[in-house]
Design a protein around this nucleic acid. Structure first.
Length: 563
RNA sequence: GCGCCUGUAACUCAGCUGGAUUAGAGUGCCACCCUCCUAAGGUGGAAGUCGUAGGUUCGAAUCCUACCAGGCGCGCCA
């Protein structure tokens, strides 16, 4: 449709002696803010210089040259400097609905990633620590980005790169030797590990902690065995949470996996003359790229996470031959990743430019301050989930007092996930955001449950209309709300593509909300069952349901038929 | 000090590859709407010098510069 408009304009402009390239015309075509202004618009401001004329005059002249609108157009009008194209909306609506109902869960796919592979690293919690809200963002955003990539046709490898190596394990080992007990560890591993960590995390123990980490890196049997136990118990705990969040990984990796490769990386760096000694430590100087200095090995001979990230990137590229690798990690690590990517490039790995750090901002508390984690004020993921779930339960019971226990569990779980996921994803990922639990959990207004609710209402209509016979769906005169809804539905594919290009799920989250909002308006002003246009409206409701389902799916949110 | 990011209604946020006379939502506040497909909803109202000052442009919340305020980062943590 757009192509046709471009051709029309191209011809008109040619006749006026203002020949303009197709690309140039396309660049200017836009969608008007309101459907009353048409379906496509062409602003003439940019031609003013070339034609030395008032933009409104130009618009009128172009309109004149176009003459009678071709078949697919209902009308072509001018409004100031704009030429507005009105399409045959009835036909358009019917075709779109047909397409959606035919393509179903595939509606909106661009298939740009066929045959290509993307590695997404996300979540990546630290072993031996509770899964706090700090890792929630990476988990939710990474999950959504994985889904968006898959939707666009890529094959995606989801990696959970556990923080399971580093100096803090020296502290943990020391703490366990000094204050730990096997019994408490079995009983409540995470809590116990957190306790001993806090006790050992003091200046007087620093030296001993370092020694324990060195032992670990050198493969000391006792250290290794304990560490393995910690890792195993933590993983079990994390898996509980991932199950609740409905999130899966293809690979559980970790920083500990790269001990051997790291030696190779060090050797390679040295051979390429990139390593320098500085105060007993090994560094790569990146000052000429404005990236400071990257520390590769500490003066005591142990490694750092930069070293491990280099090794893991190289290994992953060998193993997965990715066309792109995405790191969903907090924005505070921006410099770190720029350094790692630069070093990879300097090592001669051309694929370094396919690595991208997809960052996200911090969660702030309700006063707008960073969450205090040091004083043990950490907020546990499980608590948030349970709190949200019980709130959802109350709401559901109000409406459906007779519902079965199993059904109640299922529904409240879905509502809670929607509340939390949407609450996060509606924000632009790179910005900090306030994590005010009360607001987050609220079920009114711009929230996940609001969107689910509109889906459930749509489902309800379809259920009640089920017994009706089939026939031809005549559109009749389109109602303004119907036009708006159709228009919004048609935007879905481009929203997904945009979201993929920006690696930003918030575009899809906002779209989902707007779609639900328009549907609710339609719901109030356009009765479906019993109306003269029942068949058409039913198909529209069905199409809405499909698109909303696809859209929410990309956010990691499951729809429900009743709520 | 240097680098990156942010500053839009009382609060939380969209909009920011410049464009259509009144800058959008939600929460909260005020007033309506359940004999009607689920009121977790809808309708209307009050509420904004788009951080400040310049600049570019026919046109700026959007681009540029300076300044102010906040966040994050800048060699032995991850």
């Amino acid at each position: 449709m757009k192509q046709q408009i471009i051709e029309i304009l191209e011809n008109a402009l040619k006749e006026m002696g203002a020949e303009t390239e197709k690309e140039e015309i396309e660049k200017h075509i836009e969608i008007p803010p309101s459907f009353e202004m048409g379906d496509y618009a062409f602003p003439c401001f940019f031609l003013a210089g070339k034609l030395r004329e008032n933009p409104s005059q130009i618009a009128l002249k172009i309109r004149e040259k176009i003459g009678n609108p071709p078949e697919q157009f209902e009308d072509i009008q001018t409004s100031g400097a704009y030429i507005n194209f009105f399409l045959d909306r009835k036909k358009l609506a019917q075709n779109l609905i047909l397409k959606i109902l035919k393509e179903k869960e595939n509606f909106g796919k661009a298939n740009i990633g066929k045959g290509k592979r993307i590695v997404v690293e996300f979540s990546s919690p630290n072993i031996a620590k509770p899964f706090g809200i700090g890792h929630l963002r990476s988990t939710i955003i990474g999950n959504s980005i994985s889904k968006i990539c898959e939707f666009e046709g890529f094959s995606v490898i989801r990696i959970n790169y556990l923080g399971d190596w580093g100096t803090q394990f020296g502290k943990l080992l020391l703490g366990f030797k000094k204050f730990g007990s096997k019994k408490s560890l079995e009983k409540n591993p995470i809590k116990h590990l957190l306790e001993i960590y806090v006790k050992a995390n003091k200046k007087i123990y620093e030296k001993q902690s370092r020694e324990w980490f060195k032992k670990l890196e050198e493969g000391d049997k006792e250290a290794l065995e304990l560490w393995k136990k910690f890792r195993e118990l933590s993983l079990k705990d994390f898996e509980k949470i991932y199950k609740l969040l409905n999130i899966k990984f293809d690979v559980y990796s970790g920083e500990s996996m790269y001990n051997e490769e790291m030696k190779k990386v060090l050797k390679e760096l040295d051979e390429k003359g990139l390593l320098k000694k500085s105060d007993g430590a090994l560094v790569v100087n990146l000052e000429e790229y404005n990236l400071g200095v990257a520390l590769i090995q500490k003066s005591d001979g142990t490694t750092l996470y930069a070293t491990r990230d280099l090794a893991s990137a190289i290994e992953r590229h060998k193993k997965y031959k990715f066309s792109r690798m995405i790191y969903e990690v907090g924005q505070e690590q921006k410099l770190h990743f720029r350094q790692v990517f630069k070093i990879l490039e300097l090592m001669g790995h051309g694929w370094a430019k396919e690595c991208v750090h997809v960052d996200h901002g911090l969660y702030l508390d309700e006063t707008g301050k960073k969450f205090a984690t040091r004083k043990g004020k950490t907020i546990f993921m499980e608590d948030i989930l349970n709190e949200t779930i019980s709130l959802a339960k109350k709401e559901i019971q109000k409406r459906f007092p007779k519902i079965s226990k199993k059904e109640l569990e299922e529904r409240s779980h879905k509502v809670a996930i929607a509340a939390i996921f949407y609450g996060d994803l509606k924000n632009n990922r790179s910005n900090n955001m306030v994590f005010d639990i009360k607001r987050f959990i609220s079920f009114e207004g711009d929230t996940g449950p609001y969107i689910l609710y509109s889906y459930a209402r749509a489902s309800s209509i379809l259920r009640k209309a089920k017994s009706l016979k089939k026939g031809k769906a005549e559109t009749g005169e389109l109602d303004p709300k119907e036009i708006e809804l159709v228009k919004k539905l048609s935007e879905f594919p481009s929203v997904v593509l945009k979201s993929y290009n920006a690696l930003n799920p918030s575009l899809i989250a906002n779209y989902s909300y707007q779609l639900a909002q328009i549907f609710n308006e339609f719901y109030h002003s356009c009765p479906v069952i019993g109306s003269k246009k029942e068949l058409f409206r039913l198909s529209l409701v069905q199409a809405f349901r499909q698109v909303l389902k696809n859209s929410l799916g990309l956010l990691g949110i499951e729809t429900m038929e009743e709520m």
